[in-house]
Amino acid sequence: KLLSSIEQACDICRLKKLKCSKEKPKCAKCLKNNWECRYSPKTKRSPLTRAHLTEVESRLERLE
Rank of each mutant, 00 (worst) to 15 (best):
K32G: 10
L53S: 01
T43A: 13
K16V: 02
D11G: 03
L48V: 01
S5L: 11
S4R: 05
E23I: 08
Q8V: 06
T43L: 13
E23W: 06
V56M: 07
C37G: 06
K19M: 03
L2P: 15
T49V: 07
P47C: 05
A51G: 04
K19V: 06
I12H: 12
E55R: 11
E64M: 15
K24W: 15
K29G: 03
E57Q: 04
L60K: 10
L18Q: 09
N34M: 14
K22D: 03
A28M: 15
N34W: 03
L15S: 12
S40K: 01
P25V: 04
L31C: 13
K22T: 02
K42Y: 14
L18V: 01
I6T: 12
K24V: 15
K19Y: 02
S58M: 14
L60P: 04
A9I: 08
T54P: 08
R45V: 00
R62E: 04
K26I: 15
R50V: 06
K1R: 11
S5R: 11
R45E: 08
N34G: 13
C13F: 02
A51I: 10
C37L: 02
L3T: 13
S4E: 13
L60R: 00
R14G: 05
C30M: 07
R50P: 00
C30W: 08
R38I: 14
K42L: 10
R14Y: 07
E61K: 10
S46L: 00
L53I: 05
K44W: 06
A28W: 15
P25D: 04
E7A: 09
K19G: 15
K19T: 07
L3R: 11
K16D: 00
I12L: 12
K44Y: 08
C20H: 01
R50E: 05
R59A: 10
K1L: 13
R62C: 09
T54V: 05
L31T: 12
C37Q: 08
L2R: 12
S21N: 05
E23H: 13
I12C: 12
R38Q: 14
A28V: 14
K24Q: 14
L53P: 07
C30K: 03
D11R: 05
N33K: 10
L3K: 04
S5C: 12
C13V: 07
N34P: 02
P47I: 02
S40P: 01
N33C: 11
N33P: 01
A28P: 02
Q8H: 12
P25R: 00
K44F: 08
W35P: 07
K19N: 07
T49W: 05
L31Q: 12
R62Y: 04
S46C: 03
D11M: 01
T49A: 02
R59C: 03
T54I: 06
E36N: 13
L2V: 15
S46W: 01
C10H: 00
S4H: 12
R38P: 06
L48P: 05
L3C: 14
L63W: 00
C20R: 03
R59T: 04
K22Y: 06
K22C: 03
W35L: 15
C13S: 03
R38W: 11
I12A: 11
R38Y: 14
P47F: 03
A51M: 10
K1C: 14
K44H: 08
L31N: 14
K17V: 04
S40Q: 09
R50G: 00
E7D: 11
D11V: 10
